[in-house]
Design a protein around this nucleic acid. Sequence first.
DNA 1: CTGTTAGCGCGTTCAA
DNA 2: TTGAACGCGCTAACAG
Lengths: 374, 374
Amino acid sequence: MAEKTLDTENVLGYNVNAENVFEKPLTAGVKRMSTTIKDIAQLLHLSVSTVSKALNDYPDVAPKTKQRVQEAARSLGYRPNVIAQRLQSRRTGTLGFVLWYGEDSISDPLFNELLISMLDAAARRQYDLLVSACPLGTSRPAAYERMIKTGRVDGFILDGTDRQDDRITYLCREGFPFVVFGRTEQDIDFPYVDVDGCAGVRQAVQHLIDLGHRRIAFIGLPSFSFCAYDRRLGYEAALEANGLPLETDLIVEVEAGSEENGYSAMIQLLELSHPPTAVMVSSDLMAIGALRAAQERGVTVGRDLALIGFDDISLAAYTHPPLTTLRQPMQEIGQRLVDMLVCLLEDRPLPERHVILPPPLVIRQSSGETRGGP
Amino acid sequence: MAEKTLDTENVLGYNVNAENVFEKPLTAGVKRMSTTIKDIAQLLHLSVSTVSKALNDYPDVAPKTKQRVQEAARSLGYRPNVIAQRLQSRRTGTLGFVLWYGEDSISDPLFNELLISMLDAAARRQYDLLVSACPLGTSRPAAYERMIKTGRVDGFILDGTDRQDDRITYLCREGFPFVVFGRTEQDIDFPYVDVDGCAGVRQAVQHLIDLGHRRIAFIGLPSFSFCAYDRRLGYEAALEANGLPLETDLIVEVEAGSEENGYSAMIQLLELSHPPTAVMVSSDLMAIGALRAAQERGVTVGRDLALIGFDDISLAAYTHPPLTTLRQPMQEIGQRLVDMLVCLLEDRPLPERHVILPPPLVIRQSSGETRGGP
DNA sequence: CTGTTAGCGCGTTCAA
DNA sequence: TTGAACGCGCTAACAG
């Protein structure tokens, strides 16, 4: 959202973030498209309530009328108006997802997969998914509060947790249903699905150690993010378990997981007087940047340098060399998030309140072959 | 959506696509969260309608009461219930977007940008965007029909048009509002935004010709897709304008714009007895695959071979060598689509009914420097 | 200026 | 077994 290429400008001079508490009512433009229960009732000389009951398969309707009604409905192409159903039932049948975007997170390659799997699972459960995009930097609880107060959604799916996450504090206090992709360090219990970044990275780094590496660097994300911190812990744990020293020179923390940041972090590592022989990178996009940096400096990844990423984005298999990485099973994650939230909303017991999935280590060529001693 | 990793399976055995015309009503679980107009009315000993009018700034309310009401509303954190507003106004305030996904289109890198810009523009106009994911292969008009009949949306945004597009035929016949990213060859007039793929590719190929290339290949998408065909026309036009022959050997059409397909198309071209010296590729993702193929075969892109992509995805700047490409201004496209549809919905005149944006040629290293004759 | 009445389309009492 | 009456929360027409 950097550039303002559009010439139509802020057409109404409308400022969404202003203290404009009262959204103006939707104006005019009435159009009738679909058939209603009333139409069927009139056609069949029945009462509206009988038709309604027939359509919803109530037991106290004569089988004959039930059939007549359903046939009429079918032939008229009747579909119940969800807005009316929602008002009546006081349930929106809608799951909310707020997409927090910054300059960099716009092209997050995993988001597509998460979105599609959530949409798919939601549709299967007869729910809509309402996605709302908000720029990072605005108050986060406020965005959720608005959706709650205006009655748009029944519950939320959150992702990208911070170690201390104000959204979770807020939603818990409100008692509004939600599930989370990710964990926090807060002393609050909430339902979540997460990938075990710590164990995954630990396994990956162990793999590097087993290959003979001793100077292993780490390129990570800002440690206020839970998963960033979690992954880093895995890195530290692996070193410690193998009696290797933790050298601060070898740890680079960047602001966002972009290609460019991976590139410059790698340059920084390569310029060290005693550069690492292996690098664990917290995201594939950054790993691709790191790959480019190495290539530019004449360092052959997979031979002179071992590199492991995180995510297993679709391109990871096609880099040069193909990227060893930890795979995030986004399909399963999205599906489970939706299933859990729907359980919550329908007062069904949750099979598992906390799901932690292991990210499988996908070994390709970037981590190289076994090598000699240090 | 290839794998079925989830063990919870089809929990209810519910089949969305079945002839299940009547969605079961949303069950139980009533919860009161927000304050209503009624609450304010009771608190202030006023009638509901007066409060409503005060909130909506009607002229026929005493300034004093208006202020009292607005203050009460503010302090109670009142937000109008959008569901009720929608039922009343018979407008959903919601734009619909159906995301058609296949195996490959899941990781379409441009979709993120389109989505965010649409969400952003919609929010600015006080509209929600309802995204619905449907697998390719199911009836397309049916998906839109369902959203219309159930009263979920006021209008649609379509993308990825075919030269003959059944969705457009359907929506036109229904007289339901929609705008399109892309054009068709049908004899129907509808509002659209599109990128001039023909002119863009023509310019790109001309650039290659100006660099001295004479054997220029084309890797394209299936020609039932409008933009695929459009781009190919640009390729052919450029050749013809320069008196170059059209050689069918040099044209490869793949099924989808994946990295792998770009790779194998490129391999096919390189194995020709008389391979091309330049290749115009219809998408960046495919161009990245083509890059890999060239590299693998020891062909140095930017020197031995010129390569141009299409899209300007964020990674295009970071390939090796950086990719010359035609940039699709997704921000502007998404914004314009939303603005146009909102105009339609609010019966405001459309500034432009047909918008065709030129895709700027972004010259990087993959197209190489000027070279000698053929 | 305010309040009463009506209705958006639906599901759900409770009488008949 | 059917239908009449009510309410979800809101806006809108009309009386007072």
